[in-house]
């Protein structure tokens, strides 16, 4: 063999051996013990780091579960499937989680119902900016601003803006993380169990006259629904507020509501889903 070849092989072999030895020593000195539970839990988590669990991210949540400071059912995005898998890893029973919740947009005052101001809004198309600057184009100070901060905030594309300028939820994509609720500067998005059907679709606290002037579908605080509800509905600050623990929706005269602010929605029509009959 040529001497150069031997030298080359020896050099590379020697260098390789030298670095391998160095790394082997470093590996021992700098060894970090991974908690096997954390790694496994992290694998079954959705991995979108949305923060809906209240932790800094999926990995942080996994660490907390492994250390026992977070519940195995703490991930609302993964739902019951993920909870079961985590429970299996941790060796505990997962209680059957509750009914899925989805966000409800409690305003029906879209572009065709709400009355606009006499002036146009020019500025960043963002609800939070509109809320700070001038309250957007609509006269109503409580309704949907329609710039879609919630649509942008949703990490799962489960919200879409409809033609009327009001966001709609796509239940199949929604993971109940609740990020849209926080993104709305007017707090008109609320999380409700998916089988909940009665809502007051208005947050307007103006006096009845003003409320009627600014929007065709506002609650005018007439109180017809409240009187018949046996405490299920109360008029607070000029708007109907439902107490779901006392609500009996057979008593509510939905057809008497002039503006249609309180509605019993048809789940099949509204969400395109069939509810299981118990």
């Amino acid at each position: 063999m040529e001497p150069t070849l031997i030298l080359a092989i020896a050099t590379m072999g020697g260098l390789g051996l030298f670095f391998a030895a160095g790394l082997a020593i470093a590996d021992k000195k700098l060894a970090v013990e991974d908690n096997p539970f954390v790694v496994k839990i992290n694998e079954v988590l959705p991995g979108v780091n949305c923060g809906a669990c209240g932790k800094a991210g999926c990995y942080d949540f996994a660490v907390n579960v492994a250390e026992g400071t977070a519940s195995v059912t703490g991930c609302p995005v993964g739902g019951s499937d993920t909870a079961k898998e985590i429970a299996m890893i941790m060796g505990v029973e997962a209680a059957d989680s509750e009914v899925k919740t989805i966000p409800r947009i409690l305003c029906k005052g879209g572009n065709s119902e709400a009355v606009n101001k006499m002036v146009d809004y020019y500025g960043p198309l963002s609800c939070s900016a509109m809320e700070i600057v001038s309250g957007g184009e609509k006269q109503c100070l409580y309704g949907c601003l329609g710039a879609g901060d919630c649509v942008d905030a949703c990490p799962f594309d489960a919200l879409v803006m409809n033609d009327n300028g009001i966001p709609e939820v796509v239940p199949d994509l929604c993971t109940s993380c609740g990020i849209c609720v926080k993104s709305c500067p007017r707090d008109i998005i609320e999380m409700h169990p998916i089988d909940q059907t009665v809502f007051v679709f208005c947050k307007n606290q103006d006096d009845p006259k003003t409320a009627k002037e600014v929007c065709n579908v506002s609650c005018i605080a007439c109180g017809i629904c409240a009187r018949k509800s046996d405490g299920g509905i109360e008029i607070i600050n000029n708007v109907g507020v439902i107490n779901y623990s006392l609500l009996d929706d057979t008593k509510i005269p939905f057809e008497k509501c002039k503006s249609g602010a309180i509605q019993k929605i048809d789940l099949e029509l509204d969400l395109g889903i069939k509810m299981k009959k118990n």
């Binding site: 150069t4 030298l7 080359a8 050099t11 590379m12 260098l15 390789g16 670095f19």
Partner: peptide
């Protein structure tokens, strides 16, 4: 052995 520079540098 200058021709080994790429290999050894990468190593």
């Amino acid at each position: 052995l200058e021709f080994l520079q790429y290999v050894s540098f990468i190593l």
